[in-house]
Design a protein around this nucleic acid. Structure first.
Length: 950
RNA sequence: GCAGGGGUGGCGGAGCUUGGUCAAACGCGGCAGACUCAAGAUCUGUUGGCCAUAGGCCUGCGUGAGUUCAAAUCUCUCCCCCUGCACCA
């Protein structure tokens, strides 16, 4: 049994003592690997191995490829969860404390976590311990925390630059808001961690006839305004007459919506009344001018939107149903006729079957037609109407074409935008925000509302010039996996204004308004550059870290002497910082989970472009998918989180690393499972044992199977090197790990026993295993009589001279012959009831090879036969016979490279092996010399088989 | 809704960039055998389906169409699944 923890301890200590992972400026080409900050609000679980482990594998690989590698690490604490956690600890939140227990946080530490700073302090230690245990080749001298004062100086400097470039702007912004706490609320501030989802609706105003006031209807589909036949209100709800904003007009909306909307605009109520009282009035459609009546709608909700709904019976099943019900109840409205505004093939998305059955009686009223194809009626339950609404909305949005004059042929989304803009231009429409997933409840118990704050600071990622420069930089970045490029491209186009200041949290104060904190994703966009100097400036009085220091180090602005003088920082330190930045930042590889593409990673590119010279723009970005546990997503609520330290202790760092990092492509989720890890352990054990037993092998002359092993090794090195360059780790480690073991097994089964060959093979395999399984590789490397560090060795180089395709081909011939013989033997046994006693393997003559190759080349039977001129007459006769048989497959025939002698040789050499596999005697014969009647059936690479029964 | 990714055996997933030599590498699971008093572990073999029974044939890569001598692979259509959608790490 391998004692993983003993081996891990041993080598982790040895590496630290030898300082082999400490990056210093040097002569070799630099390569800097950074992975997204871990957040210091929880320790790591095994899922984190995916990103950090991948970065470590790359760092270790590049070191072996002759690069001077720097792999630093730091921690993020400037986040809201950390504040929320402190608060929840204070409130004695059971669920949270449960989670803390999963991570073995001692009670006394939990108690201290009412202080957010203690949370950060505790978990940064935990994180470092975990990363150490996982065997990451990190240069720990450079670590810092995002709330360290010297880092804040760096962030402030960065924001100074962004501001000087005009990228910081101020404006209105909708946020989830708790009226009780008077605070913006995010996911971490709500019960059950629900993210408040804010959605924009269009509010359209309808002028009342004969009254200086408006109804405000909220809608998602302003383009249907052409089809409005009436307005719905809720009969038994309370409504108010109020002012909205400062346009001096009066508006009718429900009382409840007035409360909600008061967080978005100034609302002053002048009168309150019952919905009942509004009935019977008329108001004007702002688009068409038509006067429409006000009716009660059964489905209208006073707390949704404005509590007033514009009715479009042609395109809204609810509206249609409401009118039908009113009609049934005898409500007079002879003048109401649905007005169709767009055309669509009804039921198209349901497939041919349902659409074929549907017989819409009134195609002029799509809303009714939708009810009909769903076999439902206007008096159906709300859920059915809802379903019909969704279907209609979706199909019309997808395929609908406008039929309204002036908008003919426009798609629904285009028309929606245009109508909205037109109405807004006239002042007849404005945006209102709604909580799409209401109710969302703040941890204090108050329902969350949408508030529009008007003094929010934004980073303007929409700035056209900035975007263009970013795209330029993006085009040159190496993306791994390459297919992530599309997502980035979309993200760069999409990102616009990003709020950068927040009211509370740990972190750097916002320089333009010290009452705010810089939002935690925005404070960490260019921090990888801070690693290049963090070790050199730690301990310097932070007040000396003035902007001119950073300007010089990162942008070479100013003069070294002057900077030293004005900051008071030692000349040599500044010089060293500049040199370190210039050196390390030439080539950087950035690693993160793919979930960060749409925020951190995109902002990472933007901010680098804004701050640094071209030479220091990002060079490579690596994203990876996440980790599942036994087929399920890992999550705290599922309780299937395995803390990293527990995992390492239980399974060993290397088996975990192979399973989580090496068994999957970057873009697919990896699967952690106990079964997979134990399979990996068995295989590591096989390699370990094989090395331990090398002494039992001999050192004779190389045999065919030895050449085969060398050939396989050479191909393996070439293949896995290619894969590693693209970080296709699954591919690389299938070859290096799994297939190596299969090859060794076959080698021994074929009678291989050469100590030199096996040792050569294993040495290279062990070295290639080093990036992913560093501890075991180190151990085995030393068992192979080396006294250097595998972690500091060179990656193996493929010796193309060792490639021997002929030998590999002949081994495949042995395999296929065995497979065929088994099948034939089984058939024979089934037919005759007798077991095979002797197998005759008859190898095809040379002329057949010529014929086959000629056909493969010419794709023409007669031409191929011509090329056989000069062969003995009898062969020619047989050749034309055979050629006739091959004629109908003329396009499928492949050429062969083996001669009859080579095949005979290869099969004879393996005849003992074949005999063992088949359990019968094996005789290998040449076609010419065989007495078997089946000899003529033999083909190149497909010997004829004849079995003598017992 | 928008954006990105995906749909291949019992399962996880290769293959798609560059069409043919290729359907299913590698792993898990299943089955059979070896070892064992036995179980487990391990090793060996086998494993898409169907019809065959001297090594063969047919069928099969979400749906439907198209391009081509040839499509898992290229184009289009539709369906379904996953992820993200901002002040939140």
């Amino acid at each position: 049994m391998i004692n993983y923890s003993e081996i891990e301890d041993k080598w982790q200590k040895a590496w630290a003592e030898a300082k082999i992972f400490e990056g210093e400026v040097g002569e070799k080409p630099p390569y800097m690997v950074t992975a997204a900050f871990p957040y210091a609000d929880m320790p790591q679980h095994i899922g984190h191995l995916r990103t950090y482990g991948t970065a470590d594998v790359l760092a270790r690989y590049k070191r072996m490829r002759g690069f001077n590698v720097l792999f630093p690490m730091a921690f993020h604490a400037s986040a809201t969860p950390i504040i929320a956690i402190a608060k929840r600890i204070q409130d004695n939140d059971k669920e949270l404390i449960e989670t803390m227990k999963i991570f073995h946080v001692p009670d006394e530490d939990i108690k201290k976590m009412v202080d957010p700073r203690y949370i950060a302090e505790y978990f940064t230690k935990e994180l470092e311990t975990g990363m150490h245990a996982a065997g990451y080749s990190v240069d720990w001298r450079r670590k810092f925390v995002s709330i360290d004062p010297f880092f804040s100086k760096f962030v402030e400097w960065q924001f100074g630059i962004l501001n000087s470039k005009g990228y910081l702007i101020q404006g209105k912004h909708p946020v989830g808001w708790c009226p009780h706490d008077n605070n913006a609320v995010g996911m971490h501030d709500t019960k059950h961690d629900v993210e408040p989802e804010i959605e924009v609706e269009t509010a359209v105003r309808f002028k009342l006839d004969g009254e200086d006031a408006y109804f405000v209807c909220s809608t998602y589909r302003p383009e249907t305004i052409f089809g409005v036949t009436n307005v719905f209100i809720k009969r038994d709800a309370r409504y108010v007459l109020c002012s909205m904003g400062d346009d001096g007009k009066s508006y009718y909306i429900s009382k409840m919506s007035a409360d909600t909307l008061s967080h978005q605009t100034k609302i002053t109520v002048s009168k309150e009344l019952a919905g009942e009282e509004l009935l019977g009035r008329k108001c004007a459609n702002p688009m068409t001018g038509a006067l429409v009546p006000v009716y009660p709608g059964f489905f209208v909700k006073e707390d949704v939107g404005t509590g007033v709904v514009m009715s479009v019976p042609a395109h809204a099943p609810f509206d249609y149903a409401a009118l039908e019900r009113l009609r049934k109840d005898g409500y007079l409205m002879d003048d109401i006729k649905p007005i169709k505004v767009l055309d669509v093939q009804i039921g198209r998305s349901l497939g041919d079957v349902s659409a074929g059955e549907a017989k819409p009686t009134q195609l002029d009223v799509p809303a009714l037609a939708y009810l009909e194809i769903l076999h439902t009626k206007p008096d159906a339950i709300d859920d059915m109407l809802e379903f019909a609404t969704k279907l209609e909305y979706r199909e019309e949005s997808h395929w609908g074409k406008m039929i309204v004059k002036g908008y003919e042929g426009m798609s629904e989304p285009a028309a929606r935008e245009r109508v909205r803009k037109e109405l807004e231009a006239k002042g007849d429409a404005f945006d209102i925000y709604v909580l799409q997933n209401a109710p969302v409840v703040c941890r204090c118990g108050t329902p969350v509302v949408v508030k529009v704050v008007d003094d929010q600071w934004f980073l303007n990622y929409g700035d056209a010039k900035w975007k263009d420069t970013t795209k330029e930089a993006f085009g040159k970045i190496n993306m791994l996996p390459e297919k992530s490029r599309n997502a980035f491209s979309a993200a760069i186009d999409w990102i616009d204004l990003r709020a950068v200041a927040r009211a509370r949290g740990l972190g750097t104060k916002f320089p333009l308004d010290r009452n705010f904190i810089i939002e935690p994703l925005s404070d960490s966009t260019i921090y990888p550059s801070f690693y290049t100097i963090s070790n050199a400036i730690r301990g310097i009085d932070v007040e000396k870290l003035k902007p001119e220091f950073f300007d010089y180090v990162y942008r070479k602005v100013g003069d070294l002497d002057a900077v030293a003088k004005s900051t008071g920082i030692d000349y040599s330190v500044i010089k060293r910082c500049r040199e370190a930045f210039e050196y390390w930042y030439q080539y950087t590889s950035r690693h993160s989970g793919s979930d960060l593409v749409f925020n951190h990673l995109t902002m990472y590119i933007f901010n680098h472009v804004a701050v640094f010279d071209k030479a220091y723009w990002p060079k490579q970005i690596v994203t990876n998918a996440l980790v599942n546990y036994e087929g399920e997503k890992m999550s705290k609520s599922l309780g299937n989180i395995v803390p990293l330290l527990d995992g390492v202790k239980k399974y060993g760092a290397d088996p975990l690393r192979i399973n989580i990092i090496g068994a999957t492509d970057l873009h697919t989720e990896s699967e952690f499972s106990n079964a997979a890890v134990s399979g990996i352990k068995e295989r590591l054990g096989y390699l370990y044992d094989t090395i331990g037993e090398l002494g039992k092998l001999e050192s004779g002359e190389l045999k065919r199977i030895d050449y085969w092993l060398y050939s396989k090794l050479s191909a393996k090195i070439e293949h896995s090197t290619d894969s590693m360059e693209k970080l296709e780790l699954r591919d690389a480690y299938t070859s290096v790990f799994y297939e190596s073991i299969l090859e060794l097994r076959r080698y021994f089964a074929r009678g291989g026993n050469n100590v030199i060959a096996v040792k050569d093979f294993l040495s290279d395999v062990v070295l290639m295993l080093q990036p992913i399984a560093p501890h075991m590789a180190e151990e085995m490397w030393h068992m192979l009589d080396n006294d250097t560090f595998a972690s500091a060795e060179k990656w193996p180089v493929s010796d193309s001279g060792m490639r021997n395709e002929k030998v590999e081909l002949l081994e495949e011939l042995v395999d296929s012959t065995i497979t065929d013989a088994k099948q034939v033997g089984a058939l024979m046994e089934k037919k005759t009831g007798k077991k095979a006693a002797k197998l005759h393997v008859i190898v095809a003559s040379g002329w057949k090879r010529k014929l086959v190759n000629a056909i493969a080349k010419e794709r023409n039977i007669s031409k191929a036969l011509e090329s056989l001129q000069g062969e003995p007459a009898s062969d020619k006769e047989q050749a034309s016979k055979l050629a006739g048989a091959l004629a109908k497959k003329v396009n499928e025939i492949r050429g062969v490279s083996t001669t009859q002698e080579e095949e005979l040789d290869g099969l004879r050499e393996a005849s003992a092996y074949m005999a063992k596999q088949l359990g019968c005697e094996v005789s290998v014969e040449a076609e010419g010399g065989s007495r078997s009647q089946r000899a003529a059936r033999s083909m190149p690479m497909k010997p004829s088989l004849d079995i003598d029964s017992a």
